[in-house]
Write a protein that binds this DNA or RNA. Structure first.
Lengths: 231, 231
DNA sequence: GAATTGAATTCTGAATTCATAATTCGAGTC
DNA sequence: GACTCGAATTATGAATTCAGAATTCAATTC
């Protein structure tokens, strides 16, 4: 009775990721951490030596990152870290905002009580960071909250899509050296978000998160306009 | 996906895409056209012979498609065409609906008069297809309308993201052998969409498109439940 | 007769090699 | 002195080769 069954897609059976995937992860980190800057040329040999792998897996990794929009691959001319114009940045935010909105709506419907409680705690810590004027701490906790909401939405497709789009504007998010008044507003928004989630008010939470993200865009573009082009 | 898309300033200098990208396009077509079905195992050698390339570009192509979520790559065990469960399908639709909503909002703001007129014409043809009971024609025109709205939104990030998510549910869309009453409703929605666009009513068009897509999900899941055969 | 073990085969993963396109740099010319 | 042309160099693209893992299948044992 040995009907050949397709491999049950059972993860966890110590299947270490392919080298190309590991390299892609490492390279993605270099870009997101800012070690490789926008517009910078990527030298294959330099990276193969750095990672201790041959060109084959590195090139496969670059194909992955190109598909994610993180690097640009020009035939016979190599790869560069994607540089996003202000226009592309402005285009990405409504997309990300829409995704956050959906995350909020679904999180309100699907989150466990434990998740809601955790997000409440994080929001309290966020308030503490604001009071203390701790900007790095604020960014860190802020990130955690958004990640927690995304996780609570229990939507894999959404999580993947969000990660891809967010990666494309990641560096810009760190540029948001926001003003004190914007900071206060953002904090207030976060508290309303936590409330709506606690009330499982999907109809409110979705738009709240969407608008929160759009406000961030406005703040970032405003800040960008004040400085001469960085990146 | 912008693999190998040259930067604008150097575009047009006949840079033929890398072989891996061509292979990725061909393989993507095979999957979207249904020649390779969900869950099917992908044999590298078979495809290298079919496309007349070596394994290297094919494997790079598979990495691209895996990043797009179109195939699953299991280390040391090969590749399979991604099979989406009903749950994953149901998860993808809200994402796609949100993206369509944004497309509508931005299209209302950015579309040229010519684009609006064209979408109006397409909607009229859609009505004609309904009257004639021409389902293939309806699907074709329907597709064109959605593509036109996406194009009119002038948002590259949105277009890429939409394409990726849509690709993951492509086959399911064709399964929608919709009922007569759902067909009529969809048609009515399309006419309201065209009206809102003509009026450049962004606040109305966004939700209209979003709800239109969600209604399609309901129809598809309903139809799926009735048949035993999947994929 | 069923189950298990292990050798043989097949397939995937990655490094290396070969081919080709682009860039660099120097010689020659105007 | 600046520009153009072309050879040399360097980097990328793709095929091949080598290594290792998984699957298959037959032989053996209970």
């Amino acid at each position: 009775m040995n009907v050949d069954r397709p491999v049950p897609e059972q993860a966890g059976l110590l299947a270490r990721p392919a080298l190309a995937v590991q390299v892609a992860d490492a390279l993605r980190s270099l870009i997101l951490e800012g070690e490789l800057k926008g517009g910078e040329k990527i030298r294959e040999i330099e990276l193969t030596e750095r990672f201790g792998v041959s060109r084959t897996p590195l090139r496969e990794a670059m194909k992955i990152l190109a598909a994610e929009g993180l690097i640009d691959l020009i035939p016979n001319r190599g790869a560069t870290v994607a540089r996003r114009s202000d226009a592309e940045l402005a285009d990405a935010f409504p997309v990300l905002a829409a995704l956050e909105g959906i995350a909020g709506t679904q999180a309100a419907e699907r989150a466990t009580d434990a998740e809601i409680a955790e997000i409440g705690r994080l929001t309290a810590r966020l308030r503490a960071a604001v009071e203390a004027g701790d900007r790095p701490g604020y960014f860190e906790i802020n990130q955690q909250i958004h990640a927690a909401i995304l996780a609570a939405s229990r939507n894999e497709v959404l999580a993947r899509t969000h990660a891809t789009v967010a990666g494309q504007i990641h560096r810009a998010r760190y540029q948001a050296n926001l003003t004190r008044s914007r900071w206060e507003k953002a904090m207030a928004e976060h508290e309303r978000i936590a409330e709506a989630l606690a009330a499982r008010d999907a109809a409110t939470l979705g738009p709240l998160l969407r608008d929160h993200m759009m406000a961030k865009l406005t703040a970032i573009l405003g800040a960008r306009r004040d400085k001469t082009a960085i990146d």
